[in-house]
């Protein structure tokens, strides 16, 4: 058996690289902030101890789900899905030109590109519930406010991804069309959009999934959909009806996600 010779300890590299003092202070500060946030904003152990039985109590009062109003709930769910589809469609259609204006190499001018990028950032940064509140004030209670809120939210997400997908396409076909004298629109429609389409379709399907989830909660602020039904059920302590609503929402969201996933795999 061969004897393994251990090198002298002084030849071994240090286990830890020399710590940068600034990085060390920042790490400690972040860790302190996380702990502080958990202790001040998070639930205390006492609250958890009191809250868990309450959750158990609510869950036990939800079963069995009440199917008496199932026809009304399903109709409301269908309207919610229509709201998601309409908002998503409007948002996606508007995201294509906005994405083109925001894409490097396709935007007609750097200033227009910056403006388009800023608009997308605003759409993305403001949460959909806030857009819903704004549109409820602007166009009144009901699904039109929800559709507009979803459309804006979709634009904030899709336009950014559309722009990135278009930027990442092969520059060769664009150069070839430019060399034969094609105009900018011809280049985009003939070379860029067909090449970016798989990525754009995948993004669109994800947007529909996202919009379906969003459409459920927008009703809580009066922007139409099944969210109103859910809020009323909880307000009236009709937990069995609430359970039915939650179950049908779950089925819809899972169905949309599964269909979207299947379509994405087929297309890409």
């Amino acid at each position: 058996m061969t004897e393994v010779k251990t090198p002298p300890a002084r030849h071994l590299p240090p286990r830890v690289e020399r710590v940068n003092p600034v990085a060390f202070v920042l790490t400690v500060a972040v860790a302190a902030f996380v702990i502080w946030s958990m202790t001040t904003a998070g639930p205390s152990l006492d609250q958890l101890a009191r809250g868990l039985p309450n959750i158990g109590n609510i869950l036990s009062r939800m079963f069995p789900p009440d199917l008496e109003r199932i026809d009304r709930i399903l109709w409301s769910l269908f309207q919610t899905f229509q709201m998601a589809v309409a908002g998503c469609a409007i948002g996606l259609v508007l995201s294509v030109p906005l994405g083109i204006l925001a894409a490097e190499g396709l935007s007609p001018h750097p200033a227009i590109r910056t403006a388009a990028r800023s608009l997308i950032a605003v759409f993305r940064t403001v949460p959909d519930l806030v857009w819903a509140l704004i549109f409820v004030i602007a166009v009144g209670l009901g699904s039109p406010a929800g559709v507009l809120a979803i459309a804006i939210d979709v634009m904030g997400f899709a336009a950014r991804f559309f722009a990135e997908a278009m930027e990442e396409t092969d520059k060769g076909p664009r150069e070839a069309l430019s060399a034969l004298g094609a105009n900018r629109l011809g280049m985009i429609m003939s070379a860029v959009l067909p090449a970016a389409s798989p990525s754009m379709i995948a993004t669109s399907l994800y947007c529909l999934e996202k919009a379906t989830r969003a459409s459920v909660v927008l009703g809580l602020v009066g922007a139409g959909g099944i969210g109103v039904e859910l809020k009323v059920a909880f307000d009236l302590f009709a937990y069995q009806t609430a359970a039915t609503i939650i179950l049908v929402i779950l089925i819809l969201v899972i169905a949309v996600e599964q269909t979207g996933g299947w379509l994405r795999r087929k297309i890409i």
Binding site: D170, G172, P173, E175, A176, A179, P194, A195
Partner: peptide, 11 residues
């Protein structure tokens, strides 16, 4: 103009 690569839209 014919390029070194075909520069067609492959899809």
């Amino acid at each position: 103009f014919v390029f070194q690569r075909h520069n067609l839209v492959t899809r």
